[in-house]
Design a protein around this nucleic acid. Structure first.
Lengths: 151, 151
DNA sequence: TTTCCTGCAAAAGCTTTGCAAGTAC
DNA sequence: GTACTTGCAAAGCTTTTGCAGGAAA
């Protein structure tokens, strides 16, 4: 029983070597549909009305499985402490971290402007000199905690 | 009793409105002396031989106090989960996150090359359009988890 | 002397894990 | 049928907190 399903999700999972379970579908759909970069628990709250009996542990396990195959991205919150957040948009884009721990997407054009500015030569230098392969580059803008009055 | 102390630390604390206690001195010195970006617990292990009776809770409280006044920086590890790390170097510089959770500094010249590439106009745009004041911009390079063989 | 800091222990918050039952393939 | 997933509960790890005693200013 798993047939009335948006078949692109099934295909997506298959392509990543993931079995297609009801819980995974619901969770992936919910995560892909929101721009809120929810925490595991927030996502759990969002879907538990739609899937009685779903367990928070499954949410964690599922998000871990998704992250492992690159289907979603784990976002560290800038504060360093607190729960981590998840994003089904795995394309390169810049995040804005709010003082309260929320994360927002920076608009596409600005995001691109920031990412394109990174000189590839510097990244190559870095790989050579530090003896690593660069898997990704994260640019995170941190909003100032002060009230947003003009100073 | 707090007089045989490197007076620059005392002055540093005073300038930031922090009382100068033995524990804070020891912790700040240890953090400033290492390039390892330790977690709270690692720092605790590093100093507890030098300060019997020091409590891990105090390490946390102290690092929190330091962070609040900008004396140290909290680093989120790129994995999203796991303990956070601390850095007494608050100047703008780029970090390299290793797959095992460690964090290394990117050499000064490369770091600068990356940071200088960020167009200030994009940041200003972002402030205007998202209605926030940008408190900081974090560039984090994530090393690929694969073995560092040449491909 | 007033206020803040420390240590301890306990609690809280986030995430992972063991296991038996269930499901996908 | 086999291997993987789920739900539950329990454990694990990281961080915070309450409080009484102690130290800094």
């Amino acid at each position: 029983m798993n047939d009335g399903v948006a078949s692109h999700i099934r295909a997506l999972f298959e392509r990543h070597g993931l079995r297609c379970t009801r819980q995974r579908q619901v969770l992936y759909e919910a995560l892909a549909a929101t721009k809120l970069h929810p925490t595991a628990d927030e996502l759990f709250q969002m879907v538990k009305s739609r899937d009685e009996g779903l367990s928070l542990a499954t949410v964690y396990n599922t998000l871990e499985a998704f992250s492992e195959v690159g289907l979603v991205r784990r976002l560290a919150c800038a504060k360093g402490t607190g729960p981590c957040r998840f994003d089904a948009d795995t394309s390169d884009h810049v995040h804005l971290s709010m003082p309260d721990g929320q994360i927002r997407d920076v608009p596409e054009d600005l995001s691109q402007k920031l990412l394109e500015a990174i000189p590839p030569s510097a990244v190559e230098d870095l790989e050579r000199r530090m003896g690593v392969r660069v898997g990704g580059l994260t640019v995170q803008v941190v909003a100032a905690p002060e009230a947003k009055v003009e100073r």
